[in-house]
């Protein structure tokens, strides 16, 4: 199967990516090559085969739910590209 520029732009938006015109064409070409390649799976009959979702045989391994602060406010802000004393800073959201 092959996809078009409109679909690619939709995907890019969903993935919060953007491309200039040249890169857009490259990505479309690559995506179509990869989709052609993975289309091989259509040739395999999987009727009646349940999807494999979890690899582990062990389910719901849970520890006691004990509240604790693992990261302090100050540490949480430490890696922020922009911040003030209390918050992450981002461009204005509301006009």
């Amino acid at each position: 199967m092959s996809t078009d520029l409109g679909t690619l732009r939709g995907l890019a938006h969903l993935a919060r990516l953007e491309f200039d015109a040249t890169r857009e064409q490259q990505m479309l070409g690559d995506l179509n090559n990869i989709l052609d390649f993975v289309a091989q799976l259509e040739g395999l009959d999987t009727t009646g085969v349940e999807p494999l979702v979890h690899l582990s045989q062990e389910v719901n391994v849970l520890r006691d739910d004990e509240a604790c602060n693992t990261v302090s406010h100050q540490d949480g802000l430490r890696n922020a590209p922009r911040k003030d004393s209390d918050y992450f800073r981002v461009p204005k959201v509301l006009e």
Binding site: T3, L14, A15, M27, L35, T46, E50, P51
Partner: peptide, 24 residues
Amino acid sequence: LLGTFVLSANYYDAYYTKAQRVRR
């Protein structure tokens, strides 16, 4: 991009679920 494609509503079963079946 490929991951977003195979998880998108129109293609989920044909690609993602199909691959999960083949994985089994």
